[in-house]
């Protein structure tokens, strides 16, 4: 995989960032709700909610670093799978 040629794959990469990035944002905010520090509930809820957007946008911004669109979908899909597995096992 490492020597694979770089491909633009605009649609695949953008959709991976938009869709999987958002889902990953939800997943990570869920993990924060589980493991985040115990502070005032409203503060924690607010932080959990606002955590989604930066994660989503950062994934969307850096998704074009993947060499191919397929790699983007596989890596981000895998990350999502791990995050959600952990979330559902722990909760």
């Amino acid at each position: 995989m490492d020597n694979q040629q770089f491909r633009s794959d605009w649609w695949l990469k953008s959709s991976a960032g938009l869709i999987l990035g958002l889902i990953l944002g939800f997943g990570l905010s869920g993990l924060f709700m589980l493991w985040g520090p115990e502070v005032i509930t409203s503060v924690k809820v607010q932080f959990t909610m606002w955590l989604v957007a930066p994660v989503w946008l950062l994934v969307l911004a850096f998704v074009f670093m993947f060499r191919t669109g397929l790699q983007a979908w596989l890596w981000l899909g895998g990350a999502n799978l791990v995050v959600f597995l952990v979330f559902f096992i722990v909760s």
Partner: peptide, 19 residues
């Protein structure tokens, strides 16, 4: 605003040639 985030990050990447 979402596109603005993309424009900001890509601009920084281009400016510092981080990749």
């Amino acid at each position: 605003a979402l596109l603005y985030a993309l424009a900001l990050v890509s601009g920084v990447i281009i400016f510092f040639r981080i990749c």
